[in-house]
Design a protein around this nucleic acid. Structure first.
Lengths: 348, 348
DNA sequence: CTGAAAGCGCTTACAG
DNA sequence: CTGAAAGCGCTTACAG
């Protein structure tokens, strides 16, 4: 079979039209073509000329070469969002929010880091080499924040450690984590375990420390074997939980708190296959409140994080920076909310 | 609070270093800087000069401006993947596969269409204006395939209708869909309903038609109210199922087949809240075999689609096209596989 | 209202 | 081994 568009079929690559081709077809200069193509004709180009150029543009299927115009103007119209893990509906909502604020003025392009990896300073530099109008970096590590030099509009998302280093929009993870600790203490839990993410993202550090602090304040205790880690992946979390459960059980653990709902799903899965009853024998909770958490078995108690608002706020701050406007002095901190469901249901 | 890096703090934007700044610091020409920066020095630049230029490069933190080099060479080193819906672990695997084939030679950037939308021809053109090295388009509509002009390396993924129009890598959805129909017929089902995606993606059309054909061949029948649609979203699917269930029930439907597992989760959710027992009263099945399908309640029967392999095959074809190599004549069709779980468990 | 020309920051023959 | 120069396709003052 001949593959369409490849060498074994004579591709017939029509060379892309340039402004000068349009110019000669319309009988004008490239300067005029540029004006027409970018809609800057008001009081500068006669209506008749505009019409003639537009005809030539559509005849030739001309599209302005963004590479050339970026170079000429020193600016571009796309924004890159660097995200550590995209296989998560948290991101779908985040992206939707970013889109809302970006509107039609900027194209959004995503750069996804490899699974379980953090965005690296090196890849940020490579991306910057494309000269995006701005950069959004989700959940960067402390290290990345330190090593990033400010040379262009950039906004961090969900980067609680960014204070004073770079502009950032954050979630109020702390209140949600505290509400969770209080809730568990009220249900009578005394010994908990924490299943963390392997990445050194500061949002995860904050989720953990905020929960731990409040839990201790409420009289809950941790044992030596209190903490385990896995990548943000149901399978890995399930395996990790299976490995540490014997030690946790021996230590009297009655509730496992997970860095993300995705981790929690893994715990539910292994608990189910080991015959551990949830929530009677073991309570489980997570962060994110992914849509699936309402329908897992049992449904999952989770700290809801306002992903869409986060995206919206971050992108609108970025646009302000790009356009040289001074953003409102106070950056919003978006509230989190505890959603109580069956996985922490009984135990009193 | 002063926002770091913004106008209210005197940003101190260090202007980015250019090749000519490096050149004057190292006491060489920009041509030589270019050679050193791109590693083309073999037998062309003396070791001593190379070292001197490299010092200047690191002193000034110089990074080649990709915009300028793209314009100069007429080519870039990034690939854009256009995807209709990313909030789905199918994509995490697809992307991982694409990455594997792209290696370190090309940067991958994703462009996500709005939820429930198909990639539009217009946005493809806008993206092309950035002059990527190549384009990957996942699950395009028939219409998009028709209207896309071949002017650069492009590969479609999961586009069964692309035959002969553009190069594409496809999944063998048909066998999986047929296996599902056979399985359901063996379980004694006679009347089925189909919950489809709203988008006009050809992969969804193929899933449906392949299933329908085989189901009829096996003696199953459809009623007038056989088909419903929703976006690829658990909540919408749940709502849609709730709306059509009375009609389906009246028609004697005993099994609902869904275009994606995400749809199926919605059906499970509504079934649960309506007190419909799955699988005793209603069997449910989907396509994709997302990780969650192994742990939903009940676990979900699904047609597994090899996302990672799809990504790998598509990207390696694209790289071949970019580099002007003639790809193997025969494009692989990647096999699908029926995974039978509890949601179609009994009923005999 | 329109065009000639400089310049964005690179790369690549071409001379030397 | 090294540099001067042209050119990639635009945009934007500047003249007219």
């Amino acid at each position: 079979m001949a593959i369409p568009g490849t060498a074994n079929e004579t591709p017939s690559h029509v060379p892309r039209a340039t402004a000068s081709m349009v110019a000669s077809r319309a009988g004008v200069s490239v300067a005029t073509v540029s004006l027409v193509a970018s809609g800057k004709t008001d009081g500068r180009v006669s209506a008749e000329t505009v019409a003639r150029v537009q005809r030539a543009i559509s005849d030739l299927n001309y599209v302005v070469n963004r590479v050339a115009s970026s170079l000429a103007t020193g600016s571009s119209n796309f924004v890159i969002l660097i995200a550590p893990d995209i296989s998560n509906s948290f991101f779908a909502r985040l992206i939707a929010g970013v889109r809302e604020s970006l509107g039609s003025s900027y194209q959004l392009l995503l750069s996804v880091t490899d699974s379980g990896q953090m965005p690296r300073a090196e890849s940020v530099r490579e991306l910057l080499a494309f000269r995006p109008a701005g950069l959004l970096v989700d959940a960067p590590s402390e290290q990345l924040m330190q090593s990033m030099s400010i040379d262009g509009p950039i906004v961090l998302l969900d980067a609680p450690g960014a204070k004073g280093i770079l502009p950032a929009v954050n979630l109020d993870v702390v209140h949600g984590a505290e509400a969770l600790a209080t809730h568990l203490a009220e249900r009578g839990h005394r010994t908990f375990a924490y299943l963390d993410s392997v990445t050194a993202t500061s949002t995860f550090a904050l989720r953990r420390t905020a929960f731990l602090a409040k839990a201790q304040e409420c009289g809950m205790r941790q044992t030596e074997h209190i903490r385990a880690r896995s990548t943000i992946d149901t399978g890995s979390a399930a395996a990790e939980f299976g490995k540490v459960w014997p030690a946790w059980q021996a230590a009297g653990v009655t509730v496992v708190v997970c860095a993300t709902d995705t981790h929690a799903y893994g715990v539910l899965q292994t608990a189910h296959s080991l015959g551990i009853r949830v929530p009677e024998q073991l309570a489980v909770a997570g962060f994110d409140d992914l849509p699936f958490s309402a329908m897992s078995h049992p449904s999952l108690t989770s700290v809801e994080l306002p992903a869409r608002k986060l995206g919206r706020a971050a992108a609108s701050l970025l646009v302000a920076l790009i356009e040289g406007r001074v953003p409102e002095a106070e950056l919003p901190i978006l509230p989190s909310r505890l959603i109580i469901r069956d996985s922490t249901g009984v135990h009193n």
